[in-house]
Amino acid sequence: MTWRPRMVALDVDGTLLETGKAVRPAVRTAVGDVLASGAHLVLASARSDVEILPVIDDLGLVDGHAVCCNGALTVRYPSRIVVEITRFDARDALRNILRSAPAAQVAVDEIGFGYDVTAYFPADELPAPQRLRALDAMTEQPAHHVIVRDPTVADLASVVTRQDFRQVSVSVSEEGWLDLVSRSVSKASALANLARAFDVDAADCLAIGNGHNDVEMLAWAGRGVAMAQSPPAVLHAADAVTGSIDDDGVAAELRRWFAPTVARRPRQVARPASTAGPSHHREAPGRPARP
């Protein structure tokens, strides 16, 4: 029997689209073919639930799931009901980072709103509502996603490598930009939970990505595919390499498995049920969860 993915996980920035730009027509069409086949399509991104909405709209997705914040938050759209969230105590990690980068800006993700920030981020870098707050107030309760930005530090990543973070996983998204989530989560862990709810084996999943935060996801999936412009560590983790984003690499890979359809009607099935009403909370060790 010819293998075809039953679940497709797609990174967003650098994979589906260039940051700040629309999804290219060939990619949009190929995504429609996935949905028309009945396979599950899941977006997997560092973006927040607010930031990922324009991508969902651009693709014409009407019902499904998105893994946000590098796996710390999974939501169902269009309702944005929280399926799973993992929070952590960010105070020690931030204290250590800010000791080496005292001018850094901090943003704490607030579900359904945007970000609380210590200083406004450039709108093109953080395209979501922002609200000024003191750092102590922002971190008084556990967070699920924290961003640290300091473009004046030549190598902010080196600051992280000198630290010992016990509860925190730190991803370097770009120069001068760090994403912090609980050490217990990744895109791969969130996708694995969704796959179980869909009754889909990892071996039947296709994942495509381009960043360091995609490495676990590419290794977890039955077929992990890296974009051609990916850094060496990502290329090494992948089973295969597709074209670059400029060459519509996502579309090329999806066309290998999903035949073009004339009429496309996006649909998602087998919605995973929450185990605690509308929102299932799986808290990392630390302080009590936010009410």
Results as ranks from 00 to 15, higher is better:
T2R: 14
A228W: 08
R255K: 11
F258H: 03
G60H: 04
H144R: 10
P285C: 13
G60A: 04
P266V: 02
E216P: 10
D57C: 05
P102I: 01
V55H: 05
E174T: 13
L59I: 10
I56C: 14
L43I: 04
G32I: 06
V42R: 10
P232L: 06
G176S: 07
R267I: 07
L43G: 05
R4L: 05
A22L: 15
E175H: 11
T242E: 08
T275H: 13
S45H: 03
T261D: 07
R265W: 02
V117T: 01
A226P: 05
D164N: 15
V170K: 00
Q105S: 13
S37N: 12
R80W: 08
L132C: 02
Q268P: 02
S100P: 00
F121V: 06
P232K: 09
A103N: 10
D109R: 00
A197I: 09
A240L: 11
N96Q: 15
G71S: 13
A157E: 15
G211S: 15
T275L: 14
A44S: 15
P102M: 03
T261K: 08
V146G: 01
A46E: 07
P260E: 08
T152S: 15
V108F: 00
D247K: 07
G224I: 05
R95N: 12
A26C: 04
A90C: 12
R95I: 00
P151A: 12
Q163I: 03
E125T: 06
E51P: 09
M1G: 13
H212Q: 13
V159L: 02
N70A: 07
T139Q: 00
N213W: 05
L59C: 04
V82D: 03
A259K: 09
M7Y: 06
E216Q: 12
R282G: 02
A221M: 12
L43K: 06
G38Q: 07
V23P: 07
G14N: 13
P288R: 10
K187T: 02
A119C: 10
R87M: 13
D13K: 09
S184W: 05
R282C: 13
H65V: 14
D136E: 14
